[in-house]
């Protein structure tokens, strides 16, 4: 494992820790998109089916379980926790994610490495992850007062994706026969989705202003 991959995974882990801490400490999920969290739950369940079929490393298995468990915890809090569920921006979080799920699934049926249930679901998870942050970005746009932690959560997630691109470049240069075109293209699309957010995040940080995204 190279330094970019490890750094990317750590950013992903930190993003989730930031979100868990924010919701737990403030007893509020204001500004957090339940739709994005549910999309991530679908992504992780479909991708990590190989937990049952193959063992890669203790690191790999542990991270997969953490991602699954934390995402379901957040969803549980937002839907069912007595105090937290009241703070959910239900009226603002209106992104119709079936318009993401269906096209991604159809694309995975057509464009995959092997036409088997496991492989199609895995490919579906790759495509869906690329667009899973969209409901969260739309919700941030509608939130006037983005709190620091929610902004940091999205920034850490975006950094994780950017670092994965460096990881792919590094692996492509150092490992023979390392190619995964579908993952690369989806990953680049996913990173592009964040560019606009990065611009405003860094600008607000440099000007010492509160983060807000123009509608």
């Amino acid at each position: 494992m190279n330094i970019f991959r490890l750094a990317g995974d750590m950013m992903h882990l930190f993003s989730i820790i930031v979100l868990l801490l924010k919701i737990n400490a403030t007893r509020s999920c204001r500004g957090v998109s339940l739709k994005t969290q549910e999309l991530y739950a679908i992504v992780f369940v479909c991708r990590y089916l190989d937990l049952f079929t193959s063992f890669i490393s203790l690191y790999n298995t542990t991270m997969k379980l953490i991602f699954l468990l934390s995402t379901f915890t957040i969803i549980y809090w937002m839907r069912f926790h007595k105090v937290i569920r009241v703070t959910y921006d239900r009226e603002q979080d209106t992104f119709r994610y079936q318009f993401l799920i269906l096209p991604c699934f159809l694309l995975a049926l057509v464009l995959n490495n092997e036409f088997s249930a496991m492989e199609v679901l895995w490919t579906f998870s790759i495509y869906l992850e690329a667009v899973a942050i969209l409901p969260q970005l739309v919700l941030l746009q509608r939130t006037n007062n983005i709190d620091n932690l929610t902004g940091n959560y999205v920034f850490l997630l975006g950094s994780y994706r950017a670092l994965y691109i460096l990881n792919w470049i590094y692996r492509f240069m150092t490992e023979p026969n390392y190619r995964q075109y579908l993952v690369w293209i989806s990953g680049i699309v996913q990173t592009i989705v964040y560019i606009d957010f990065f611009y405003y995040y860094i600008r607000s940080w440099r000007n010492n202003e509160k983060l807000s995204l123009p509608a």
């Binding site: 992903h12 193959s54 890669i56 790999n60 991270m63 026969n177 390392y178 190619r179 995964q180």
Partner: peptide, 10 residues
């Protein structure tokens, strides 16, 4: 070949 390699990422 390469298939297992792909799946080692998260």
């Amino acid at each position: 070949p390469g298939q297992e390699l792909v799946k080692d990422e998260l």
